[in-house]
């Protein structure tokens, strides 16, 4: 498993380096103007400039990411609740599915102003829009996943007659880990895109979205790319943390079985004595 992770990481690093190389080639050649595509070294230097970090990253990025993480977690929790409710009450599923299909068809540039018109030009409007769209994309995955957990719980219960504690450790937690793997990255991406789009559209001060919009209009491409670079770095950090979560969920089961294996030799000795 570890070697597979290393291979994946190696592949990602190689592809990132390839992209940077292509970027540098385009930027230093005369194909694309440097005012539109600044060279990567210039962008990297700007990213680590103290003044730039202080004015754009420390406050704006922190605030934006706090709201993104908040909307993401609330969106997922509500989706989980609605997914579970839909299994018990079919009509909830029929009733809400139209709304969720509509939500999935709605671009954020339309959804954010709609929420702002109802709730006012506040951060809460962008957050509510973000929560709603996270729900639209995650609820069906949660429902399917809960169905799958319930099906395998039934099958394993009759075959292995596990105790309630073991059912939770060996069926429910790993099932939740599988669901998390399937939806975490996608739903976080939705929360991030909608929140930044909301900040751009509603022009919130001290926000990544507003900074990006201003740099774009002023054609300050080095600053624009530097902000996007930081955005990507933070998104990668959060995705790395979330990708570690499934292993944490599977750990108790693996620990129980490892413990059984550890005691093997002492038992073998005991059997020999009995003989």
């Amino acid at each position: 498993m570890k070697s597979r992770n290393h291979t994946t990481m190696f592949k990602v690093i190689i592809s990132v380096l390839c992209w940077v190389l292509i970027w540098a080639l385009f930027s230093h050649s005369t194909i694309v103007s440097q005012s539109l595509l600044p060279p990567p070294e210039k962008v990297l230097l700007r990213m680590v400039e103290i003044g730039f970090i202080h004015s754009h990253i420390v406050t704006g990025m922190f605030e934006t990411f706090s709201w993104v993480v908040f909307s993401w977690i609330i969106g997922l929790l509500v989706s989980l609740f609605i997914g579970a409710l839909s299994i018990k009450c079919r009509w909830v599923n029929y009733f809400l599915s139209i709304l969720f299909i509509g939500g999935r068809a709605l671009p954020s540039v339309i959804a954010v102003p709609l929420f702002a018109a109802i709730m006012g030009i506040e951060r809460a409007s962008a957050a509510a829009c973000s929560i709603f769209l996270v729900m639209c994309y995650s609820e069906s995955s949660f429902r399917e996943s809960l169905n799958a957990i319930s099906k395998s719980r039934k099958a394993i219960k009759s075959a292995l007659a596990l105790s309630l504690k073991h059912e939770f450790i060996f069926i429910v937690l790993p099932g939740a880990a599988r669901t998390w793997r399937a939806i975490a990255v996608q739903s976080f991406g939705i929360a991030l895109v909608v929140m930044v789009a909301g900040e751009m559209i509603l022009s919130f001060s001290n926000s990544v979205g507003d900074d990006v919009a201003q740099m774009m209009w002023l054609l300050k491409m080095v600053d624009l790319y530097a902000i996007v670079g930081w955005l990507v770095i933070w998104a990668i950090v959060i995705n790395c943390i979330t990708s570690a979560l499934p292993s944490v969920m599977e750990w108790p089961g693996q620990r129980i079985l490892a413990q059984l294996g550890k005691n093997k030799h002492s038992t073998m000795e005991a059997n020999v004595h009995v003989k």
């Binding site: 292995l160 105790s163 060996f170 790993p174 599988r178 089961g253 693996q254 129980i256 059984l260 294996g261």
Partner: peptide, 20 residues
């Protein structure tokens, strides 16, 4: 097929049968 634990290795899939 529904009773396989894909996240466990092959040996642990046998060993889990002794839990009860």
């Amino acid at each position: 097929g529904d009773t396989i634990f894909p996240w466990l290795n092959t040996w642990d899939n046998i060993l889990i049968g002794t839990l009860k």
